[in-house]
């Protein structure tokens, strides 16, 4: 009986801490939403109220029109499409090559590329900026897009290589015997088998690009070309104390990502797990 009491207490403690932690996690979201729907008058009441009255939906329509947020959304999506396509395509090619094709120096090259994971981006930032400046590409999307077409990042290559390594090599050899070349093997056999890993990379690349701030900040100066993240930051300078607007605009940037998460939840968990464990 004392054992069952102890077990009950233990269970209680587990749920208590988990729920308390969950509340702490949800609180900032609640604050964000509630502020995004409040009038300026109500937002500055002390002690703060939680339920907007009335619901100030205008915050959203105002915030999203005083600054051209739709324009920023289109800009962001333009970059997204080009970056995601480049990353998925070239990291798949590299991951496949490093995992399953034999060529001299392969492991050395892979090791070198992998070592860039430790490299702070600051080291390459300035010369890369100078390079794009000398090419006249400042205030264009090229500096944000082109690097994605050159391998798609060490991390993604590593992830796909790991994934390709788990597929039996007999498949390739059988296909070679039938006269297939590596391109056909990759396209017909391997890509269908590693779709989950590709979706993981697609999703995380999409989010990384959506959230990127320093890149657009450095390369884009014309406010018509801003991305959502950069637009939101500049918005802050314009409407300093308009917390309703600022929170509505922030919500508008958070919401698509949360939506994406709920659609592809399985891939998220798989992706994080894959990255953490196999490291």
């Amino acid at each position: 009986m004392s054992i069952s009491t102890a077990r009950l207490l233990h269970r209680f403690a587990v749920y208590f801490i988990l729920i308390a932690g969950s509340i702490a996690m949800v609180f900032p979201f609640a604050w964000l939403l509630r502020s995004s729907l409040m009038s300026t008058a109500q937002i500055f009441i002390f002690p703060p109220e939680w339920i907007p009255r009335p619901f100030e939906w205008r915050n959203y329509s105002d915030a999203l029109t005083v600054v051209p947020f739709f324009r920023y959304f289109l800009n962001t999506m333009t970059i997204e499409l080009s970056v995601v396509a480049g990353v998925v395509m070239t990291s798949t090619m590299a991951g496949y090559s490093f995992a399953r094709l034999k060529w001299p120096g392969r492991n050395l090259v892979f090791g070198l590329i992998l070592s860039t994971l430790m490299l702070p981006y600051a080291v390459t930032l300035i010369p890369t900026f100078v390079l794009w400046k000398s090419l006249g590409a400042i205030n264009t999307y090229w500096p944000l897009i082109v690097p994605a077409w050159f391998g798609g990042g060490a991390f993604n290559i590593f992830l796909l290589r790991q994934f390709f390594n788990t597929i039996p090599k007999d498949l390739d050899e059988a296909a070679y015997m039938d006269g297939a070349n590596p391109l056909t093997v990759l396209w017909r056999i391997l890509i269908p088998l590693c779709t989950p890993a590709l979706i993981v990379i697609l999703i995380f690349t999409f989010i990384g690009t959506w959230n990127d701030f320093l890149g657009p900040l450095i390369y884009l100066s014309d406010s018509n070309k801003f991305t959502l993240a950069l637009g939101l930051a500049s918005f802050r300078g314009m409407y300093n104390a308009q917390w309703g607007y600022l929170m509505a605009a922030s919500t508008a940037i958070v919401a698509p990502i949360i939506f994406l998460f709920f659609i592809g939840q399985r891939y998220f968990i798989e992706g994080i797990t894959l990255t953490g464990i196999k490291g």
Partner: peptide
């Protein structure tokens, strides 16, 4: 395999040279 292997890894290798090694030396 050698031919396709190098071809497939080429973008990543070029990226490593253009966007990592080159800028590192320059910086």
């Amino acid at each position: 395999e050698r031919k396709w292997g190098i071809l497939f890894a080429l973008p990543a290798m070029l990226g490593f040279i253009i966007f990592v090694v080159g800028p590192m030396i320059a910086s």
